[in-house]
Design a protein around this nucleic acid. Structure first.
Lengths: 193, 193
DNA sequence: CCTCACTATTTTACGAGTAAAACACGTGTT
DNA sequence: AACACGTGTTTTACTCGTAAAATAGTGAGG
């Protein structure tokens, strides 16, 4: 997964939405339609969680689809971009293990991506001199150039997509998501510990 | 996609988070740390979109991981549950094509899932009498029982996970997500049309 | 009736991720 | 020194999803 996104496969909703029928902008989103269906079948259930979780999942799916456009133009998947981005933003070499943690993916996935990115000349590896188990990965000049070239486009694209919401709402949304995410991450950390 | 990250597979964040270091509950979420890193490398860029898209992606990844627990106990993947749920909440038979649209997945994926679910005795199919190309799928009694048995657990689990946010914030978040999703879906629909 | 164009569904080939096993090395202990 | 154990990375076997091709069937023209 990309550092930023981490979506399971795109498009799984807790609720299951109705894309078939064209969305009616005046009546709300597809998730609210699904929730109404459930309510009419099981009126006794509290469908509150679907209104948040279903929408987060659906938004993630839609945003990802839209968002990948500038990346794909550069021939990169989101996962690959996240890996390169982790190297770029930390500014120093990272080991495969660190990259896996940084991009929320398995070590095996990182191994495969590094293989491809190395073949494409975007990253280089060198072995650690003290501990020969570990490798150190860094961006090549081409890799750094690619990231720096794509990032502005990517951000501009995302800005455009999000511009359907007024800036005030964007700030509020970012704040609420930060609160939710912070507490979820704390809780997960607590479970692990 | 994500402005920052773009992880397609589960867990991709627009920003690329730092799970390696334990999250510090007091200092914010992993996404804000990633955004700070980007800012220090490229101070001229507007990283605003990452604060929303990165967090949505990351939340989706975390919630899905947590959320799937009750499902897996019943031996169902999220995708399978979505398919069964679509049949349950609409209350009538659906064709494979309708199921694909309803669950936001490809027809091929639906074909595979139907095969498995049919073998497990959770759904049944019958051919249309007029148009022999189309099939009609319905839940068996076992399938309906399974969905009705799981759904309350699933919702209770989701309620517990979301309880890290006070109810007022939950409502606000649901509202903002509904607005975003409604407009995104409208825009996508407009692009298609 | 035959054929062309279109639609619904399934099949095929393949890409990408994961978990678990396999490797390859350090490190502490005796 | 030798061994057991832990850790970093890669390999293996497998699942699942997709895109595109193949299959099957309808319906309008001619």
């Amino acid at each position: 997964m990309t550092a930023t996104n981490g979506g399971p496969t795109p498009g799984s909703d807790a609720t299951g939405a109705r894309p078939g029928a064209g969305p009616d902008p005046a009546r709300g989103d597809t998730v609210s339609a699904v929730v109404r269906q459930w309510q009419s079948v099981h009126p006794e259930l509290d469908t509150g969680p679907m209104e948040i979780i279903g929408r987060i999942n659906r938004c993630a799916a839609l945003l990802q689809q839209a968002e990948d456009a500038p990346l794909r133009r550069a021939g990169l998947s989101r996962a690959e971009f996240d890996l390169l981005g982790a190297l770029r933003r930390t500014g120093h070499e990272l080991t495969p293990g660190e990259l896996a943690r940084e991009t929320f993916s398995s070590g095996a996935a990182v191994t495969k991506r590094l293989k491809q990115l190395t073949e494409r000349g975007l990253v280089e590896r060198r072995g650690d001199t003290r501990d020969r188990r570990v490798a150190h990965v860094r961006l090549t000049d081409a890799g750094r150039g690619l990231v720096d070239g794509i990032l502005p486009d990517q951000l501009a694209y995302e800005t455009a997509v999000l511009s359907v919401l007024p800036p005030g709402d964007q700030g509020e949304l970012a704040g609420l998501l930060a609160e939710l995410l912070g507490r979820l991450e704390g809780r997960m950390g607590a479970l692990r510990a």
